[in-house]
């Protein structure tokens, strides 16, 4: 959400509009840029309306409604592939946790009540209810999916842990297609250090 206050954001949607780019801009409006609320970011009533000045389509959707987000994105995609230009989608949503695990404390800038209100709209709960009522989903199926996801995460973490530790020589080798002489010297220097 905070990113829409950056000048680059306006330049990006303006370029996309000018070139009728097949682009979709998704603005995840979770109400805060760390601690600063959307009302202090902009006087605009919605973020979607920023599309108007760029001359592109803009739509605000309930970001806690899976199907609404799907419908808006599908329409935007069709517009893009048909050469009708870009779309900006603002999804209204919420960040339950802190911005980072490195010291952000949401109790300094928002209330429990606010969080409770958003929890009532939780997209997973709502979509589950919807599917269950249609007879398309059950607890067993859900548990199966959860277990499978846990296994996948575990496997991914294991694979990551098995990767060799990053070395300074790797960083040096990633800097240019062909290493300039000064970096070649530094590469030798760090090779010697790393082999110790």
């Amino acid at each position: 959400m905070g990113g829409t206050s950056q000048g680059d954001f306006y330049e990006g949607i303006n370029f996309a509009g000018a070139y009728k780019a097949p682009a979709i801009f998704v603005v995840q409006n979770n109400q805060f840029a760390i601690s600063v609320p959307v009302e202090k970011q902009t006087a605009a009533k919605t973020l979607a309306q920023k599309a108007v000045a760029a001359g592109i389509e803009g739509i605000q959707v309930d970001g806690m409604d899976v199907l609404a987000v799907y419908a808006a994105t599908k329409e935007a995609r069709e517009r893009a592939v048909n050469g009708e230009g870009p779309t900006l989608i603002e999804t209204l949503t919420y960040r339950y946790g802190p911005h980072t695990m490195a010291g952000d404390d949401p109790t300094r800038y928002r209330t429990e009540d606010m969080t409770t209100e958003w929890e009532k709209k939780d997209p997973i709960v709502r979509f589950r209810k919807f599917l269950e009522e249609k007879g398309l989903w059950s607890e067993e199926q859900e548990n199966e999916v959860i277990e499978k996801a846990k296994e996948e995460i575990k496997a991914a973490i294991k694979k990551t842990d098995e990767q060799p530790k990053q070395k300074v020589t790797d960083l040096i080798n990633n800097m240019y297609e062909e290493l300039p002489a000064h970096l070649q010297e530094q590469l030798e220097e760090y090779k010697a250090k790393e082999s110790k």
């Binding site: 530790k165 300074v168 960083l171 800097m175 970096l183 250090k193």
Partner: peptide, 15 residues
């Protein structure tokens, strides 16, 4: 520091 982009955490202490 060597002439690379700032190192990620794993290599930070050596970098």
């Amino acid at each position: 520091a060597p002439d690379t982009v700032y190192a990620f955490t794993q290599a930070e202490e050596v970098w």
